[in-house]
Nucleic acid binder design. Structure first.
Length: 861
RNA sequence: GCCCCUGUGGUGAAAUUGGUAGACGCGCCGCACUCAAAAUGCGGUAUCGAGAGAUGUGCUGGUUCGAGUCCGGCCAGGGGCACCA
């Protein structure tokens, strides 16, 4: 028998070329799909941002999707498994500023490098559908869709307050503001009012919430997060009229049952009533200013004291015009939630209670706390639990829920309020004062106002000749780009220089993958042939924003009749992060002369992140490879460039080949769980790959059946398939090991030969290069990737015998092998006749015997 | 503060509806092959105990013939939201 070795580097290169040259993983066209009875499988991993190199997180993400896509193909599905690039965004502009390269050049060369790296993984991708969002043939269509939504009234412009970095002259997202300063410049961030474009996602709040119910293949956690984010609250919107005036203050409450416990009305600092009063009240103006300055970070809010300013105004209680309440401006009331005004019911709301105690306002109990019904509420802890309503006239005696309904009914009947639903969800602000994004296709004309760019002028192409020498938006400074003729009056006009939030790019790329005509964003029928995505796979960090925006965008397209799909992602899988320890080294700070910098007689040190490849172990402690100084081990975090805790996957591919790395990624840890990175064990997977190869190389001309092995094989076929389908790859790996162990131990036979050949197919989704190599080695023609997944013979899955556990008082004492289906009485008799049981019982009579056929006998003694 | 998730050997982890805890892998130990090493193969590996046996799924109480799994109360770690009326 000739011995051959598996050479992964040769095999990887060879089969990757065969797959690519033969367009083996090209998805069928929509027409072919319609004409075939094959079920469809659209498998999609979240497309990468081309940051430069792939990292372990990418390897995990794309391996998971790839196994599923390959399995789906083998199980007779028409598969769409595409790849593209989320290529607009800030890092490109930062690179431009730091390295003096054009964002386009930087991005495109990154894509070239990362495409090659991804291909090195051996992914079953239809590369003919590759797209890149920074190219006009993508973003031009996005501009067309934006104008469609504009025309449909789903886009509007509004003054809104933004975080403005005065040094970089740009708007910052909330996450980019750290302790009130810009994350890059370190400058104090200012609040600035800017005219911004918004998408009306709130129009779809109810739909987006209701739609979650139908997403039964989404993780409950993600649905819950979206539900909280959308934040539906139902309650009463009512008006507290000013004393002696027809006007009033609109208030929203989720607790109309506590109306009779009201003791003040509080309005936001930005409330129009406050603004009006402040014009003639300098003290109030100063207070409002204070409120605006207040930080918005979690820590600020935690420590901020409830503060108010008594306006001197009084309002009438809607249920009793003679009952007057003071009106405060309060720092804890938000203008952009509800109506920007609340009524305070201190006894049953902690915040209101803090406020009332501070300003000496009445605190009246209106919900009984057990048998406590005294109207005089004592203590500093509000009661927010259930109870009967008390001290509340017509609501007395009702439950909280009944009283809510009764109060709302009365308000509606008497005309001073109505049932209202309020959402936490805000409209989506999509304007970014940046260069590297989709230009917003709008023209501002002094005479004709805000106009869409005519369709014939799309795409609005991003100019390439820009400079990043000075901070700010290069589009704003470009000498010619923004100057255009008004499409209406032909007078000189100005282009919109803002670009779209990059989340817009990722809100429809999965549609473009399904259909990519040149003259429009997508063809309706083609897109509908593939959509929705059957299985979407990505990081949980996108659980809210990306997934919510994509769901909104899809519904918006549905509303304007462009696509009859409401939910873009039927199945969602959120993979865990690949994490690694972080390391910090400390070094002395030097002065200009190069001597240690001494302060108060002590050398000043600074600590900084170092990468895992710079850390050595010496005498049981970790030291920095550069100078041997001690290393402090930080917490385990997601691999990121800033913490320097990344590990480059590519050397592993060069050393062990794609299959060993893929197998390693799939082994052991369930894919939804975070994976603390460790290379311990990669040699083990490499050994396993070689063990399998030796099996493939061991086929002989033996005959004869091996019924035990047949059974094991068919159990593996069924089990591995089910595990892959459930994305439980760690379990599929374990079952593959069991099968391999069994085959290795089995003597030569026809059954064994069959098992070895079948094994090649079973590993093909996970170890595709090895499997192709085996297929060729067997002398077969064609590709194993195109073979049908083996069929499990169900009759072989039925066990003839069952191992019965014999327990005494629930503790295992003995096991018995019996024929399956042995009746209860026989089992009981067998159990009681067992030597061990007789000994254990030591003559005492069983009180009771529980028999579960095919499982166990439990003797209660 | 509110909401959610997780907790099992040295280690990554398995465990259909409550029914033999620790499958499978990594590591480690022993053995074989070898002048030797690597590679490979064989055996062992929850804890205590010489053994029979006892104990064991974060802690604690409960339901049950029987609990890793269900219920209550804690503890620890992680995540999400947060002056949301």
């Amino acid at each position: 028998m000739s011995q051959s070795r598996f050479n992964p580097l040769k095999a990887d290169a060879h089969w990757q070329k065969v797959w690519e040259d033969g367009a083996v993983f090209a998805a069928p066209s929509a027409a072919e799909l319609a004409g075939s009875d094959r079920p469809k499988a659209y498998v999609l991993e979240m497309f990468p941002y081309p940051s430069g190199r792939i990292h372990m997180g990418h390897v995990r993400n794309y391996t998971l999707g790839d196994v599923l896509a390959r399995y789906k193909a083998m199980t007779g599905h028409a598969v769409l498994h595409p790849m593209g690039w989320d290529s607009f965004g800030m890092p490109a502009e930062n690179a431009a500023m730091e390295k003096k390269v054009h964002p386009g050049d930087w991005t495109r060369s990154n894509i070239t490098a990362m495409r090659a790296q991804l291909k090195r993984l051996g992914l079953a991708i239809d590369w003919s559908r590759e797209l890149s969002t920074c190219e006009p043939d993508y973003y031009g269509h996005e501009q067309a869709l934006f104008l469609d939504l504009f025309k449909a009234g789903l886009v509007y412009r509004k003054e809104s307050s933004v975080n403005w970095d005065p040094v970089d002259m740009t708007v910052l997202a909330n996450e980019q503001v750290i302790d009130g300063r810009g994350w890059r410049s370190g400058a104090l961030v200012e609040k600035k009012k800017l005219s911004q474009w918004f998408l009306k996602i709130t129009d779809f709040a109810e739909d987006l919430l209701d739609g979650l119910d139908g997403l039964d293949k989404w993780p409950a956690k993600v649905k819950l997060m979206q539900e909280n984010w959308i934040g539906k609250s139902q309650g009463l919107r009512c008006t507290f009229s000013f004393v002696d005036s027809p006007d009033g203050i609109a208030v929203f409450t989720t607790r109309p049952d506590t109306m009779f416990g009201a003791s003040f009305v509080a309005i936001a600092a930005d409330h129009p009533v406050a603004t009006e009063l402040a014009a003639n009240a300098p003290e109030l103006a100063r207070f409002i200013d204070e409120c605006r300055k207040g930080g918005t970070t979690a820590a600020d809010i935690e420590t901020a004291e409830k503060q108010g300013f008594n306006t001197g105004l009084s309002v009438e209680h809607p249920l009793d015009p003679d009952w007057h309440l003071p009106v405060y401006v309060a720092n804890f009331v938000l203008m952009d939630y509800g109506t920007g005004a609340v009524f305070g019911c201190p006894a049953h709301d902690q915040r209101d209670l803090d406020f009332a105690r501070k300003y000496g306002l009445p605190v009246v109990r209106v919900v009984a706390d057990g048998d406590q019904i005294d109207p005089d509420f004592e203590g500093d802890e509000a009661y927010t639990g259930p109870g009967a309503i008390v001290n509340s006239h017509f609501l007395n005696g009702m439950s909280v829920d009944d009283a809510k309904n009764a109060a709302i009914a009365t308000a509606q009947h008497e005309g001073w309020g109505e049932a209202t639903t309020v959402w936490r969800l805000r409209d989506w602000g999509v304007s970014r004062q940046r260069y590297w994004g989709t230009p917003i296709p709008i023209i501002h004309c002094e005479f004709c106002g805000v106009l869409p760019v005519p369709r014939s002028q799309l795409p609005v192409i991003l100019p390439e000749d820009v400079s990043f020498d000075i901070p700010g938006n290069p589009l704003e400074r470009h000498p010619t780009w923004k100057h255009v003729a008004c499409p209406n009056c032909k007078e000189p006009a100005r282009r919109e220089t803002d670009t779209l939030d990059t989340f817009v790019n990722s809100s429809w790329y999965f549609i473009r993958f399904a259909s990519q005509p040149g003259n429009m964003p997508f063809d309706k029928a083609e897109a509908e042939a593939w959509l929705p995505v059957g299985q979407y796979i990505g990081g949980v960090e996108h659980a809210i924003l990306h997934l919510l925006y994509a769901r909104f965008w899809t519904r918006a397209l549905q509303r304007i009749g462009r696509l009859d799909v409401s939910e873009p992602f039927k199945g969602l899988f959120t993979q865990g992060m690949v994490t690694h320890e972080t390391y910090r080294a400390t070094k002395a700070v030097m002065n200009l002369k190069g001597d240690p910098f001494i302060q108060d007689g002590v050398p000043v040190t600074e600590s900084f992140w170092v990468g895992p490849d710079e850390v050595l172990e010496k005498d049981g402690a970790l030291v920095w490879s550069a100078d041997g100084s001690p290393i402090e081990i930080g917490r385990i975090e997601k691999m990121s460039k800033s913490k320097k805790n990344t590990v480059d996957p590519m050397p592993m591919f060069d050393q062990f080949g794609a299959d060993a790395v893929r197998w390693f990624m799939l082994s052991d840890s369930p894919p939804e769980r975070d994976l603390p990175w460790s290379e311990a064990g990669i040699e083990g997977t490499w050994r396993f790959v070689n063990r399998i190869w030796r099996l493939f190389d061991s086929l002989g001309a033996s005959g004869g059946e091996d019924k035990v092995l047949d059974k094991i094989l068919h159990r593996a076929i069924a089990g591995i398939g089910a595990d892959i389908e459930a994305l439980a790859f760690n379990k599929a790996v374990a079952k593959t090991h069991e099968l391999v162990n069994a085959i290795e131990k089995a003597p030569p036979s026809a059954s064994r030969n069959t098992a070895v050949r079948t094994l090649a197919k079973l590993i093909s989704p996970m170890l595709p290069h090895l499997a192709e190599e085996a297929w060729a080695h067997f002398g077969e023609s064609g590709l194993i990737s195109k073979q049908a997944w083996p069929r499990a013979d169900l009759s072989l899955l039925v066990e003839a015998n069952a191992t019965i556990a014999i327990q005494i008082n629930g503790k295992l004492r003995e096991t018995l092998l019996v024929a399956k289906g042995t009746d209860k009485a026989t089992l009981e008799a067998l159990a009681l006749a067992s030597d061990k049981i007789i000994r254990s019982l030591a003559g005492s009579r069983p009180k009771k015997v529980i028999v579960v056929p095919d499982r166990l006998v439990n003797i209660v003694a």
